[in-house]
């Protein structure tokens, strides 16, 4: 189970604690979102979290500090996920170097598809960072094979056409079977993780049963948004995470 959290959301201080709590409650991988002002592949939830984090004063340097701090007590794999412009503005070479130095394991840059991968793939490889590319239901077999070849770490399988968080699990489940079938026959080198539309343990079982894992992002941020800053808000969030992984115990 991979969990997505926007760095600096809901506040700058909580991100490390949240990740440690996610790990303790069953997360196997963390996708740490690098906020961008114009996240055009994201729905309202992640747009909101990104805006809050930018308002909180998140910067690339602070994201690296978060990972460094986390690495003092955890070895959970961390993938930085975000749009290409902040990375480009920071300087692709120094971005990859510093990310690697502080303990980042890989990158997902949705708006740098294989066509444009040369902007970052060389620097990522040089600094030992995995590059994770995406496939979608409208990706051809040939395309899936290309993505498998270019990716390392895993391949991110987008379950439906659309932005993050927009659709319900049931809606996704209806169409996802054939897609996962094609994914399994074309993506052989890398593990496959399915994301988009997974909001519960049941959704995950329905949608990702034939994949190697699943990703939850918007639903997790919605839970934080509902509970923050009430007393015990983190406990509510961690309970949600535990249920995502293990169902109702």
């Amino acid at each position: 189970m991979s969990l997505f959290i926007t760095a600096g959301y809901p506040d700058l201080e909580s991100t490390v604690d949240l990740i440690l709590g996610f790990e303790k409650n069953g997360a196997d991988l963390i996708e740490l979102g690098m906020p961008f002002s114009d996240p055009l592949a994201d729905g309202p939830t992640i747009q909101y979290a990104s805006n809050v984090a930018i308002g909180n004063g998140i910067t690339m340097k602070k994201i690296f500090e978060i990972v460094s701090e986390l690495r003092k007590s955890s070895e959970i794999p961390v993938i930085l996920m975000g749009y290409i412009n902040p990375v480009f503005k920071y300087g692709v070479e120094s971005f990859c170097e510093e990310a690697s130095n502080c303990g980042v394991d890989g990158l997902i840059i949705p708006d740098a598809p294989p066509e444009e991968s040369s902007i970052i793939a060389g620097a990522a490889e040089k600094h030992g960072l995995n590059m994770i590319y995406l496939v979608a239901p409208n990706s051809s077999d040939k395309r899936m094979q290309l993505v498998d070849k270019l990716s390392s770490g895993f391949v991110y399988c987008v379950s439906v056409t659309g932005v993050t968080g927009a659709r319900s699990g049931n809606e996704v489940a209806q169409s996802v079977g054939k897609f996962i079938e094609r994914v399994k026959s074309n993506i052989t080198k890398n593990p496959t993780l399915v994301g988009f539309g997974i909001k519960s343990h049941e959704d995950a079982k329905l949608i990702a049963k034939d994949a190697d894992g699943f990703i939850v992002g918007s639903a997790l941020i919605d839970i934080i948004r509902e509970n923050y800053p009430n007393k015990d808000w983190k406990e509510h969030v961690f309970n949600f995470v535990k249920k995502l992984k293990f169902g109702n115990l």
């Binding site: 598809p113 066509e115 496939v135 979608a136 409208n138």
Partner: peptide, 12 residues
């Protein structure tokens, strides 16, 4: 220039 778009839009 280029094509800096999410994977879903590449086939389109």
């Amino acid at each position: 220039g280029g094509k800096f778009v999410p994977e879903i839009l590449i086939p389109a």
